[in-house]
Write a protein that binds this DNA or RNA. Sequence first.
DNA 1: ACATAAGATGAGAAGGAACTCACCTTCAGA
DNA 2: TCTGAAGGTGAGTTCCTTCTCATCTTATGT
Lengths: 203, 203
Amino acid sequence: MSTPKNKGVRADGRRNRARILAAAEGVFADNGPSASTEQIAVRAGVAIGTIFRHFPTKQALLQAIMKDLLRQLTDQADALAANGDPATALFTFFTQTVEQAVRKKSVIDLLARTGIDLQITEAVQLLDHSVHTLLTRAQDVGAITPTTRTDEVTTLLAAMCQATTLPSWNPDLQHRTLAVIFHGLTPNPPNPPNQANDKQAEH
Amino acid sequence: MSTPKNKGVRADGRRNRARILAAAEGVFADNGPSASTEQIAVRAGVAIGTIFRHFPTKQALLQAIMKDLLRQLTDQADALAANGDPATALFTFFTQTVEQAVRKKSVIDLLARTGIDLQITEAVQLLDHSVHTLLTRAQDVGAITPTTRTDEVTTLLAAMCQATTLPSWNPDLQHRTLAVIFHGLTPNPPNPPNQANDKQAEH
DNA sequence: ACATAAGATGAGAAGGAACTCACCTTCAGA
DNA sequence: TCTGAAGGTGAGTTCCTTCTCATCTTATGT
């Protein structure tokens, strides 16, 4: 047997590994980053020993989840860079990501918190690169202030993701705060730097 | 004896209470919100039992710190509302607060995190009120988009305070990201009352 | 100076969480 | 089918935290 990209391990091993990952993501989303490994074991339907067989420490488990999550975000960014309208792709990505943070609250929040000690720099760099592409394209069509740099976007993004855990957070507030940021990223005059201010100039 | 506003308690009692508060703030700032009460006791130079005499639970200690911190912020906001230039007072307050968050990292971050279970609503409302004043005045002189609401400002503020804990945070990045937000809060045309349309379609 | 109650102390109880390990179960190749 | 090794199990170990309490110390009024 053994599926193509199989490293020569048993089927139940891989199955359980996936189960644990899924369960951990859910438990962290529900109960915050301080949720116990025991809870994850229960949700995954395995013994706690099994978790520590696959992930030698809790840190390792977190790393695995974070990398997975960062890869998802990177994929989304790449997809938007490939298909979407350059002028709105960055805003769409921004909104999508915050939206996702609402669902996976503590996972995202944990991203920022443990980001220092967790070794996920590689995955972070990949995301940065994708965001950079999104940003550059939007700037090329004049949708974003040309002086804006990638780290500003990712920082604002991380900040807003963390803000989703605020008690007062709600869809309306989300919409309005993101609108402020989007406006902040948009150049002042609609298109030409010359032209005083024309009334209706939408193309 | 007994100083004016003294509730008829012993002097060493009040002295230790203050010491504990100061030590707790420092320890939380250094080691994050999960720092142990034992650490606080060491830094304060008291026995752990003394802490629990003054603050029956760890929660109570956190509440005391949070209220203190919120009061400081409220005072700053009020001072700016009274003295400062309305057009820049809000921005100054915003910057000051973020600056403070850098110093008291985990305390501020803890604000958002435990905000739900901690009963500090009263203190939060006071701060909200002061920010509201700051905002209204700035809008009156046209420095801030008139549609902006107080909760947008406080949310963005909380978000940026949390962002100070990001590994990549630095003064330059701080300056640039705050500039984006400030621009986002500023109306598009500096002078003419003719406001064509700030970015509308998104969603 | 004395009495006394308020305050301080710190070993330890109680509880929880990460992690281990000796033993059992199951997969997969021959 | 048989067998060896990969994988699973979960009670137990270790460590850490919050919180208690019997006992000692000291501030304060008289």
